[in-house]
Design a protein around this nucleic acid. Sequence first.
DNA 1: ATCCCGAGGG
DNA 2: CCCTCTGGAT
Length: 214
Amino acid sequence: MYIKKATLAIIEELKQLYPDALCSLDYGTDFELLFAVRLSAQCTDARVNLVTPALFARFPTLEDYAQADPKEVGKYIHSCGFYNAKAQDLVTCAQQLLSRHDGKVPDTMEDLTALAGIGRKTANLILGDIYKHPSYVCDTHCIRITGRLGITDGSKDPLQVERQLRKALPPAESTDFCHRMVLFGRDTCTARTAKCEVCALRPYCKMGKKLKID
DNA sequence: ATCCCGAGGG
DNA sequence: CCCTCTGGAT
């Protein structure tokens, strides 16, 4: 499997920038990570981290969610947006984890995406962070930045991007790479006005080369 | 007005 | 492919 030199250079540069490629969501147990990721849909991680301490304290176990009134769960997560759907998903997902998986978070894409509210992006994150499988977390940051860098062809379709990243990245680097995309996307390669003038990846980036700085 | 580590349904 | 779900930050 051939990996482009530019891609390897980008990977190394990102390691320098972010030695710890950590998920920025706060959680204790495996299912709490699963739930925090569900809550993070169209919401900042910082916002999720603001509500999860009270949520996790009120509902410590899967049984607590499984028996909960979605209305009450919704109150704890209101500020994250999509709170009706998310609250119902946590309750249903907890019931499914208990009935289908003995209360354990499953370790296959098929089982994970069969759970309420768990799509491919969340499943990939769980496979990478909990089970240490090669994973391709194609969220808004990863899709935007790999497109700008020319690692992908610019497609916005998560499945397309995932297929392209599967060929473009060394599998052992994939999970950390995706986490670093998020960190990099928050502080440098931002959506609206990317800070190309201070970007360490500008030499490798089509978008950065276009603008004439200095 | 646009974006935030999306998912599900038509 | 499209649409809806939703609040908060910039």
